Deep mutational scan, measured.
Amino acid sequence: TTYKLILNGKTLKGETTTEAVDAETAERVFKEYAKKNGVDGEWTYDDATKTFTSTE
């Protein structure tokens, strides 16, 4: 399943996707990605669109 991440950081904005077996796995991948890029925001998830959003 393809999951999408929308980053709305103070210094980094953008989108990326990952293939994962479930939302929990995708969330771990995306949170590590955000951390590596210095984004520490509030997380939301929309199951209908398989989209995570992190907003600082």
Results as ranks from 00 to 15, higher is better:
Y3S: 02
Y3E: 02
Y3A: 01
L5F: 08
L5R: 00
L5P: 02
I6Q: 04
L7G: 01
L7H: 03
L7V: 07
L7D: 02
N8W: 11
N8E: 08
G9N: 05
K10A: 13
K10R: 13
T11W: 14
T11P: 04
T11H: 14
T11L: 12
T11V: 11
L12C: 15
K13Y: 13
K13P: 04
K13M: 09
K13L: 08
G14E: 14
G14R: 13
E15W: 14
E15Y: 13
T16R: 10
T16M: 15
T17F: 14
T17R: 07
T17W: 14
T18A: 08
T18M: 14
E19N: 12
E19G: 04
E19M: 14
E19I: 15
A20L: 02
A20I: 02
A20H: 02
A20K: 02
V21K: 13
V21D: 13
V21L: 13
V21S: 12
D22E: 04
D22T: 05
A23S: 09
A23V: 14
E24L: 12
E24Y: 09
E24W: 09
E24R: 09
E24P: 09
T25K: 06
A26S: 01
A26W: 01
A26I: 01
A26T: 01
E27H: 13
R28A: 12
R28I: 10
V29Q: 08
V29E: 09
V29Y: 15
F30M: 02
F30C: 02
K31E: 03
K31Y: 06
E32P: 00
E32G: 04
Y33W: 13
Y33E: 03
Y33P: 00
Y33C: 05
A34D: 01
A34T: 06
A34M: 07
A34L: 10
K35Y: 11
K35Q: 12
K35C: 11
K35M: 11
K36F: 10
K36C: 11
N37S: 09
N37K: 12
N37P: 01
G38L: 05
G38T: 03
G38H: 07
G38Q: 07
V39I: 13
V39N: 04
D40V: 13
G41Y: 05
G41R: 03
E42Q: 12
W43A: 01
W43C: 03
T44F: 10
T44I: 09
Y45I: 01
Y45W: 02
Y45K: 00
D46A: 03
D46Y: 03
D47K: 08
D47G: 08
A48D: 12
A48E: 12
T49P: 00
T49C: 05
K50P: 00
T51L: 04
F52W: 06
F52H: 01
F52R: 00
T53K: 06
S54F: 15
T55F: 09
T55M: 07
T55V: 09
E56V: 07
E56I: 07
E56Q: 09
E56W: 09
E56D: 07
